[in-house]
Design a protein around this nucleic acid. Structure first.
Lengths: 242, 242
DNA sequence: CAGTGGTCTAGACCACTAC
DNA sequence: TAGTGGTCTAGACCACTGT
């Protein structure tokens, strides 16, 4: 493992700007020193300062207005695990500081059927259907059904271990997951749908997703039911202006 | 109205790259020419090409991997009314092809209280609390509670008409809504919470949102309960790669 | 090793905002 | 007019990937 001993300069400058905001107790709406002032102060090139500022604008910390200046937009806190970022169920569980595990796995082979359009395969093409109960520190976190075209797998599907991350599994078969098309729906599950639940009914956020690899091939159709007790989904929504 | 007759070079280069992808029929996963090749071909500086590429990466069109190259990343055409785009309830209702209306309005003045942090005002500062039932073709579409600092309004608040779009109202008072920080939560409402409902319980997607204007000032805290019968929220989720 | 993208500099000029 | 951020260049070196 090779390491860059020093972080990139633009990152260090970025941190220095954050420190400056804190040290000088600048508040939202306040103006930052000019780019010219900043690159002289830090003794770096202007592009470096501009890269740092661009990152902070991207993160929503700063706001630039041409001809006016750079301003504090909000307290320097970034939304972690925003919904627009694609994470696997495993990663989402780790993100809330819990240990992921899988407590029930059912696997069978089915034809694509109605999903053939969504997966861009024939209706009779075989798919692997995987049903799993995912837990965070042993608490029920999500109920997941994944349907993957058999052609995605290079290995013999009988030898596959489905306990871990779906994304890892797909990556091992040469399909790096790039993005998803997702539909959100609030859902109520009962003990009949989901016997492991403690209560007779539970509220879940259903993410109906189609995952695509970097070549644009649909690699999986999923219904992931995230427990509202465990997960809070956050997102920054930007308005189309002008 | 002043115009820049020529678009910035980096935008023209960006369009040229898109044209090149189309003309050479490059497919998702294919490698783009190197930066070195591109800036020579277009006769511009490397930074300009890099800015253009950065925009396209940001838009999800391209994917960069250090040491490897730049690749086409297939992303479907932007989802219409995707959740990452900020629309008002009014706009969301129009987007499903329905006529928006408001069937109940309650307004009162309250102190900010616990919301003072979120709205960046004092706990005793007065806010306007607005409760509304929004309908799509007379069907219940959403139940909305909006809390707006009184200081946002330049007009006398008693003369305000709350029937229409919240965003229009804020814009009329000089606060163009720029973005929101939103948290999603599946929610069940009962007739007690929401007497207008037909059934005794209903499933809603709660969007707890803080809206900010273009200056980064928080202008409204909202709890919008969107009926799952009327709305389907879609989003394209991109995975952090490389 | 060669080739890729990533970082960084110094300097120039342009476009927009305010006074 | 002065001062801001926006665009653009030419050139240097670094870090990562594959052979």
């Amino acid at each position: 493992m090779k390491l860059t001993l020093d972080k990139p300069l633009q990152i260090r400058v970025q941190e220095a700007i954050i420190d400056m905001i804190r040290d000088e107790s600048l508040l939202p709406g306040d103006q930052l020193p000019t780019e010219s002032e900043l690159y002289k102060r830090f003794g770096v090139g202007r592009s470096t300062v501009r890269e740092s500022l661009a990152n902070l604008v991207q993160q929503g910390v700063l706001l630039k207005m041409q001809g006016k200046g750079t301003f504090i937009r909000s307290v320097p806190v970034r939304v972690k695990n925003g919904l627009d970022q694609l994470f696997s169920v495993t990663e989402n569980i780790k993100a809330v500081g819990a240990v992921p595990s899988t407590s029930r796995i059912n696997v069978k082979t089915i034809p694509a059927g109605e999903l053939s359009d969504k997966l861009s395969i024939g209706a009779k093409d075989p798919c692997v259907w995987v049903e799993r109960v995912r837990r965070a520190n042993d608490e029920i976190a999500a109920y997941c059904i994944d349907i993957i075209p058999k052609s995605i797998f290079s290995d013999n599907i009988d030898k596959i271990d489905y306990k871990g991350s779906l994304f890892d599994l797909l990556a091992q078969n040469g399909h790096l997951v790039s993005h998803s098309e997702s539909t959100l729906r609030p859902t109520m599950l009962t003990k009949r749908d989901f016997p492991e639940m403690k209560d007779s009914v539970g509220l879940f956020l259903l993410l109906e997703e189609i995952f695509f690899d970097i070549s644009g091939i649909p690699v999986c159709y999923s219904n992931d039911y995230y427990s509202s007790n465990v997960f809070d989904f956050k997102i920054i929504r930007k308005r189309q202006l002008g």
